[in-house]
C-alpha cells in the first residue's frame, strides 16, 4: 500500500519538471510586462523634456531647437476625425448587416473578407488610397490619408459590431417584434442601443489603432514641416505619427527630442483611448446579457 506522503521513485523528476515549466510560464508573463514598461518609461523620460510651450505651438525646425509639432497635432485631429466620420457608419452598418442579415453565403463571404482585411498590411491599404485618390486627384491630401485610415478601421469595427450585436439575446428582439414594431426599428431602437457600449468600445479601439498608423500616411499625405493645407482635398498634411518617423531620423539631437515629445503625446492619446474603451465596456457591458 503506497503512501501519499513523500516522493516515490520517478515522481521527484516529474515534480521538478512541473516546477520548471511553471517557472517558465511565469517568465513568459514577465516577458510581456518588461517591454511595455521599458517603452513607456523610456518614452516618458525622453519625451518629457520636449514638452514646453513651443512644442505645442511651434512648427518643426530641422535646425536649432527643433521647434514644435502644432501642425502634427492639428493634422492628427483632422485626419483621424475624418477617418472616424467615414469609417464608423460604414463599419457599424456592415456589422449590423452581418449580425442581422448575414446568415447566408454572401454574409460568409463578407465576414471572411473583413477578417482577411484586418490582416492586410496597412502599407498595402496606403497603396490603394494612393492609387485611388492621390493619383486621380493629382496630389497628396489629408482626405487621401483619412480614406486610408477609414479603410483600416472598417473591418475592425464591422467584426466587433457584429459580435456585440450577436450577444444581444433574441428574447429582446422578439419582445419588440411581438409588439408589432417593424424589424428595422427594432434593430435601430432596441438592438443597437442595447449593444451600444460594446460598439463604442470597438470604435474607440479602432480609432486608437489608426491614430498611431504611419505607413499608409507616407503614401497619402506625404508629411510637411509647414502648417497643414487648409484644403483637406489638396496639399500635403502631417500627423504626430508621421512626424515621429520624419523627425526621429534627423541627425540633430534637438530635433530627435521633439520626435520623442511627439511619441509621448501619441502614446498618451493611443493608450488613453484604449483604456477609455476598456472602462466604458467594463462599466456597462452588454445589457441584458
Amino acid at each position: 500500500m503506497s503512501s501519499i506522503h513523500g516522493n516515490p521513485s520517478g515522481y521527484g523528476r516529474r515534480k521538478l519538471m512541473d516546477r520548471v515549466m511553471t517557472t517558465l510560464a511565469y517568465l513568459c508573463a514577465a516577458a510581456a510586462i518588461i517591454p511595455l514598461t521599458w517603452i513607456i518609461v523610456y518614452v516618458v523620460i525622453k519625451g518629457l523634456g520636449a514638452w514646453d510651450a513651443e512644442f505645442f505651438t511651434g512648427l518643426p525646425q530641422l535646425f536649432g531647437d527643433g521647434g514644435g509639432v502644432r501642425n502634427g497635432i492639428v493634422g492628427t485631429l483632422v485626419i483621424v476625425g475624418l477617418a472616424t466620420l467615414m469609417g464608423v457608419p460604414i463599419g457599424v452598418m456592415a456589422g449590423i448587416y452581418l449580425a442581422e442579415y448575414g446568415n447566408n453565403r454572401f454574409g460568409t463571404v463578407v465576414r471572411f473578407l473583413a477578417d482577411t482585411m484586418t490582416g492586410i498590411p496597412s502599407i498595402v491599404v496606403g497603396i490603394f488610397a494612393f492609387g485611388l485618390i492621390v493619383v486621380n486627384t493629382g496630389g497628396f491630401s489629408a482626405f487621401a490619408g483619412s480614406v486610408a485610415l477609414a479603410l483600416l478601421m472598417i473591418p475592425v469595427i464591422t467584426r466587433t459590431t457584429e459580435e456585440i450585436i450577436r450577444l444581444v439575446p433574441d428574447s429582446i428582439r422578439e419582445a419588440s417584434l411581438g409588439l408589432g414594431v417593424s424589424r428595422w426599428k427594432t434593430i435601430l431602437r432596441v438592438v443597437v442601443p442595447t449593444a451600444l457600449s460594446g460598439i463604442v468600445t470597438g470604435v474607440l479601439l479602432a480609432v486608437a489603432r489608426v491614430a498611431g498608423e504611419t505607413a499608409p500616411l507616407i503614401l497619402t499625405i506625404l508629411g510637411t514641416n509647414f502648417p497643414i493645407s487648409a484644403n483637406i482635398f489638396d496639399g500635403p498634411s502631417t500627423t504626430l505619427s508621421l512626424q515621429i518617423y520624419q523627425l526621429g531620423a534627423q541627425p540633430s539631437p534637438e530635433v530627435v527630442e521633439v520626435a520623442w515629445g511627439a511619441a509621448m503625446l501619441l502614446v498618451l492619446i493611443v493608450l488613453g483611448t484604449s483604456i477609455l474603451a476598456r472602462v466604458i465596456f467594463r462599466g456597462q457591458s452588454v445589457r441584458g446579457r
Binding site: M1, S2, S3, I4, H5, Y11, K15
Partner: peptide, 17 residues
Amino acid sequence: DGEDVYAPDVDPVRVRR
C-alpha cells in the same frame, strides 16, 4: 489509508493516483 489527504505535506497528485 490512515493518512490525512489534506495534510500540508500531501501532494494532490499523489492522492489522485
